[in-house]
C-alpha cells in the first residue's frame, strides 16, 4: 500500500513538472537567460513554479509536522545539517553549471526519460554516474575523517 501511494506521489510530482512546463529544457534555459530580459524573450515561468511549490510546501509542512509521525513510519526524517560548509557551495556550483549547459535538473530529467528519447537517456545515464561518484567520494571522505578523528 505504502509503495503504491509513493508511486502516486511521484506521479503527482512529475505531472506538476509537466503542467509547469519544466519538463521542457528550453523553458528552463529561457528563465536562466537573464540577459534576454531587455529583448523580452525572457521566460519568468520557473520563478512562478518555485514560488507556487514553496508556498504550498511551507504551509503543508507546518500542518504535517504537527503530527507525531508519518502515516507509514515512526519519525519524520528532516535534514539536521546546519553548517555552511564548502560542500554546500561547491556542490550547487557544479550542479548549476550542468543545469545551465542542458537545462535539465534531476526531476525534469526523469520526466524526460519517460518520453524515451536518446538525449534524455544519455543525460540520465550520465547523471546517475555523477550521483554515484559523488556519494562514493562523500562516504570515503566521511570514513577518512572519522578514522583521523577530524
Amino acid at each position: 500500500m505504502a509503495v503504491l501511494i509513493q508511486f502516486a506521489i511521484g506521479l503527482i510530482f512529475g505531472v506538476g513538472l509537466v503542467v509547469a512546463g519544466m519538463s521542457d529544457p528550453a523553458k528552463v534555459l529561457n528563465f536562466l537567460d537573464f540577459a534576454a530580459i531587455p529583448a523580452r524573450t525572457w521566460d519568468a515561468s520557473l520563478a512562478f513554479v518555485l514560488g507556487g511549490a514553496v508556498a504550498v510546501t511551507a504551509i503543508g509542512f507546518r500542518l504535517v509536522l504537527r503530527r507525531g509521525q508519518p502515516v507509514f513510519g515512526t519519525a519524520f526524517h528532516l535534514p539536521n545539517a546546519r553548517a555552511i560548509d564548502a560542500r554546500i557551495i561547491t556542490g550547487p556550483a557544479i550542479f548549476g553549471i550542468g543545469w545551465g549547459l542542458a537545462g535539465f535538473c534531476p526531476g525534469p530529467a526523469l520526466t524526460a526519460l519517460g518520453a524515451g528519447t536518446l538525449p534524455a537517456i544519455t543525460f540520465v545515464a550520465s547523471m546517475l554516474v555523477g550521483m554515484i561518484a559523488a556519494r562514493w567520494l562523500a562516504e570515503r571522505q566521511t570514513t577518512a575523517a572519522s578514522l583521523t578523528g577530524a
Binding site: A2, I5, Q6, I9, G10, I12, F13, V15, G16, L17, V18, V19, A20, G21, M22, S45, L46, A47, F48, V49, L50, G51, G52, A53, V54, A55, V56, T57, G60, F61, L63, V64, L65, R67, Q69, P70, V71, F72, G73, A75, F76, H77, L78, P79
Partner: peptide, 24 residues
C-alpha cells in the same frame, strides 16, 4: 500553468512528508 504545476509539486512534497516522513 507555472503556479498550478508548482502547486502540484508542492502537494507531492507535502504528501511524501505526511506519508513517509521524507523530503521529496
Amino acid at each position: 500553468a507555472a503556479l498550478a504545476g508548482g502547486a502540484l509539486i508542492g502537494v507531492a512534497s507535502v504528501l511524501l512528508m505526511a506519508v513517509k516522513g521524507r523530503i521529496a
